[in-house]
Design a binder for these strands. Structure first.
Length: 560
RNA sequence: AGGGGUAUAGCCAAACGGUAAGGCAACGGCCUCUGACGCCGUCAUCUCUUGGUUCGAAUCCAGGUACCCCUGCCA
């Protein structure tokens, strides 16, 4: 290594600027961020952006990042999700260390703070039902009207609130509200609900509570309790900020966090809403939350995307406040870039057609050496076998070649990668006229390079596998789940944009024998075909299943 | 009585009153036993629009326009 320092490629963004200034001015001596998912579903690529921002900022500025479950609504939350979220964050390469928190661990403190507000005349128990509350709230352009219960005495409020806690009242009969301003142009300030009655057990604190705080009453205070300095969320919470601050201003909280918002990730050709993803699972359109086509982190992981690639993607798309649409191809490109470095090369024939080399001795098998990586000799080489009958890909042969096609044609010659130059001398057809077998002749002197004996350079190099040594496996090729760039746009059913060809299963693929004992975790490049790895759920010794993680770039296809 | 945001190239995105970074894509070309990888080059006289302030404006001011978010006892 040279002594030249690698300049940090990380682009500047508004959050870094804010933190820089806070550190420089002495407002904070170090920063604390948090990733605060509600455990009500699986994480997706949009969450990865948030995770990378929060944990990345902490890492870059020498601070720390907490994992906090925002578990204030037991009706939607489950232990299963808590576990899968932890797993996904870890998989992405981040670690909260000792700093795992649950909003629900603060329920007693939050309750005491609610009592504090009541005593301060800033909160009251509401007897109106949900529908009436809505009617009183007003509209976007009209102010709301005050509830008849708004001016109850502190004593009555205290009594009612404590009885709400003990479970005396059924769900939906009362709520606790903040007394702020029913005429505020910001609707979230029109006496927001603080607590609702829910006789529902909670995944983390069990049946200790019959009332649960709302997000708004929990988030900022929890940030304050944890000592969060920069509370980073998505743009849709922006209008909640005055409320977030109202609580911090009116409660004896131990610290003063600030909320900052960024634009959430929108990806083309995919849907990100939990409801729609769930529907795809329920309908059986996909095999589950971890279907390799899903934008969930579980799906992405199973597909074979690497954490490093996802992190690089999040770094590359940047952080801003303007609504943006990122093309999925950028994610795919990040995966290619990462895998190109690390994936050992191998050959696999996906759509096999037999090539019989008539001038090759029937009883001979040669051992050839093939490099595992063209630019990295340190990755070594492997032994492959060459004999009279080999498999080549049907797509690498055209009886009547199209313009620009430089693979195998009748009478044409091509280099078999790491092997010999062969010339196709004829084809065998079935009754329907389809080509079922190729015949050819090889040039024994063409092991090195791509030049023929008379000095010509062959145009094409194709992959192949010895028929006698090949192992047959299943390969699954994936394409985008949707055929429209924005299936989630309003007004139409996103399901009408489902891509019928989003998965193609090939059951008669031929791989090199050395791959039969391959590690499930190892990603390979099947030369000229893309990056693949075994499906962690469906692949077993004796019945191997490979997923195509991503194709190689293909200027030829693009040109066609 | 509505409020809050956002507009810089095909897609992201820097810039902090001093003369439009970078990445991806695209397009040429080179290299190549992967139509891969890699390498070289090209790609905004201009920042949604109209005025204004200034020696100087993407940055400041005023007026437009477009899009996004907010009327859950969801987060």
């Amino acid at each position: 290594m040279t002594s030249v320092e690698q300049v940090a490629p990380t682009a500047n963004n508004f959050l870094k600027t804010i933190i820089d200034e806070d550190l420089k001015s002495g407002k904070h001596s170090s920063i604390v961020t948090r990733f605060p998912p509600e455990p009500n579903g699986y994480l997706h690529i949009g969450h990865a952006k948030s995770i990378c921002i929060n944990f990345g900022l902490a890492r870059d500025f020498g601070g720390r990042c907490h994992l906090r479950f925002d578990d204030t609504n037991p009706a939607k939350e489950e232990l299963e999700y808590i576990d899968s979220i932890k797993e996904s964050v870890l998989w992405l390469g981040f670690d909260w260390g000792e700093h795992l928190y649950f909003a629900s661990d603060n329920f007693e403190q939050l309750y005491q703070w609610a009592v504090f507000l009541i005593k301060d005349g800033k909160a009251y128990v509401e007897d109106l039902n949900a529908e009436q509350i809505r009617a009183h709230r007003g509209t976007l352009t009209e102010p709301g009207t005050e509830s008849p219960y708004r001016n109850r005495s502190v004593e009555e409020n205290l009594d009612l609130f404590s009885r709400m806690r003990t479970g005396e009242f059924p769900d939906g009969t009362r709520v606790l509200r903040a007394k702020i301003d029913m005429a505020s142009p910001n609707i979230s300030l029109r006496d927001p609900v603080l607590y609702r009655i829910l006789h529902t057990p909670h995944p983390h604190v069990g049946d200790a509570w019959k009332i649960y705080p709302m997000y708004d009453f929990a988030h900022g205070q929890t940030d304050a309790i944890e000592g969060i300095t920069h509370s980073i969320c998505t743009l849709e919470f922006e209008s909640h900020k005055p409320l977030y601050e109202w609580f911090l201003d009116n409660l004896p909280v131990p610290s003063r966090p600030r909320q900052y918002e960024f634009a959430r990730l929108n990806l083309t050709y995919t849907v990100m809403s939990k409801r729609k993803l769930q529907e795809l699972v329920q309908l059986g359109t996909v095999s589950g939350w971890d279907d390799p086509r899903m934008p969930t982190l579980a799906g992405i992981k199973r597909r074979g995307y690497t954490p490093a690639a996802v992190r690089a993607f999040c770094e590359q798309i940047g952080v801003g406040r303007s609504d943006s649409w990122i093309d999925v191809s950028i994610l795919e490109e990040c995966v290619r870039t990462d895998l190109n470095e690390s994936a050992p090369r191998t050959m696999a024939v996906l759509r096999p057609i037999k090539l019989v080399i008539d001038n090759y001795p029937a009883d001979l098998t040669e051992e050839l050496q093939a490099a595992n990586h063209p630019q990295k000799p340190e990755m070594g080489s492997r032994t492959i076998y060459f004999n009279r009958e080999i498999w080549i890909d049907a797509e690498d042969f055209m009886e009547v070649p199209s313009k620009g096609f430089h693979r195998l044609t009748v009478g044409g010659e091509v280099k078999l990668r790491a092997g010999y130059i062969v010339k196709c001398t004829g084809v065998v057809k079935d009754a329907q006229g389809a080509v079922v077998e190729l015949h050819g002749e090889y040039d024994p002197a063409s092991r090195e390079g791509i030049h023929t004996a008379d000095g010509r350079k062959v145009k094409g190099v194709i992959h192949w596998v010895s028929a006698a040594h090949a192992v047959t496996v299943e390969v699954r090729l994936f394409d985008r789940l949707f055929s429209d760039p924005n299936p989630d746009r309003g007004g139409v059913d996103y399901k009408q944009f489902l891509n019928a060809g989003s998965i193609e299963t090939l059951s008669d693929c031929k791989i090199e024998a050395t791959l039969a004992g391959a590690n499930v975790e190892t990603r390979y490049q099947f030369e000229r075909m893309g990056y693949f790895r075994q499906d962690p759920k469906d692949s077993f010794p004796g019945k191997l299943v490979f997923n195509r993680i991503v194709t190689l770039r293909d200027a030829w296809i693009t040109k066609k």
